[in-house]
């Protein structure tokens, strides 16, 4: 990324991995980061209540002609330029953290990327600043009282009962045992970094616990013995009534053998 800054690259730096992501660059500065690991600008803006879903959709339609979603959003009057910009910067920093906190397999510079970010940060952020900020966030996560992987660890409500802030109640409500910090960040529309830090603190206070594997993954099967079509005469007459063609194939017994 530093090399991209020196070469004043306009395009994108694509990071393959889980969660992976795309760093959008203009003249070597980072103007947006999109990652499957962190909620994007749209989610953050909508959940902050700064803008309604209707206004967002309308601004998106308008921006197709004008080319600037930022201008279309501000023109609708419900949100100021400074707020849009602040959320865009927050989403950018959170995206960089999401990429760095996950597995990185490969980085490729796509200099002629036609993929334009929805809400770029005006002027962009210098890579050196972003890298320092991201390193700081990674250090902060590593030194938390209860270290937590934002992608691998899934959480359930803990034993402790005490009054909690609305923010914490929301996290507990989404802690089904199947969701990681990343999943809860998307479900609540808050940044990955803040949700990860909060979950770690709540683990320390026993308000949450790491979910056992059987809760994180709940497999059940229906006892289907085979996908081979049954021999003629094995099928019940009822099944033959509703399918008179050989397709779809008859797929054997359908009763459930596992608890629902």
């Amino acid at each position: 990324m530093t090399q991209c800054h020196e070469d004043r690259v306009t395009g994108a730096l694509s990071v393959t991995g889980n969660a992976g992501g795309l760093f959008h660059l203009r003249d070597g500065a980072v103007i947006a980061v999109e990652s499957a690991g962190s909620p994007g600008v749209e989610t953050l803006l909508l959940s902050s209540g700064g803008i309604s879903a209707e206004d967002w959709d309308a601004a998106l339609v308008e921006s197709v002609g004008t080319g600037s979603l930022q201008a279309a959003l501000v023109a609708r009057g419900s949100i100021g330029l400074a707020e849009v910009e602040a959320v865009a910067v927050a989403a950018l920093q959170d995206g960089a953290f999401a990429v760095a906190a996950g597995d990185v397999q490969e980085c490729v510079v796509v200099s002629d990327s036609a993929d334009v970010p929805l809400l770029p940060v005006t002027g962009g952020v210098a890579p050196a600043l972003l890298l320092a900020e991201t390193a700081g966030r990674l250090d902060a996560i590593a030194s938390l009282p209860v270290p937590l992987s934002p992608y691998r660890d899934r959480v359930v409500p803990g034993r402790a009962t005490k009054s909690m802030s609305g923010e914490r109640r929301e996290i507990v409500a989404h802690a089904t045992g199947r969701r990681s910090a990343r999943d809860i960040a998307f479900a609540t529309g808050r940044s990955l970094h803040s949700v990860t830090v909060e979950i770690s603190r709540m683990l320390g206070e026993e308000l949450l616990e790491i979910a056992p594997p059987a809760t994180a993954f709940s497999f059940s099967h229906w006892g289907l013995p085979s996908l081979r079509p049954r021999a003629p005469g094995q099928s019940s007459g009822k099944e033959m009534d509703w399918t008179t063609t050989p397709w779809p194939p008859n797929c054997g017994r359908s009763e459930r053998t596992s608890p629902e």
Binding site: W222, L227, P248, G252
Partner: peptide, 10 residues
């Protein structure tokens, strides 16, 4: 199965 009967679910 292709006819819509669940085999394994998570």
């Amino acid at each position: 199965a292709s006819d819509g009967i669940p085999i394994l679910t998570d």
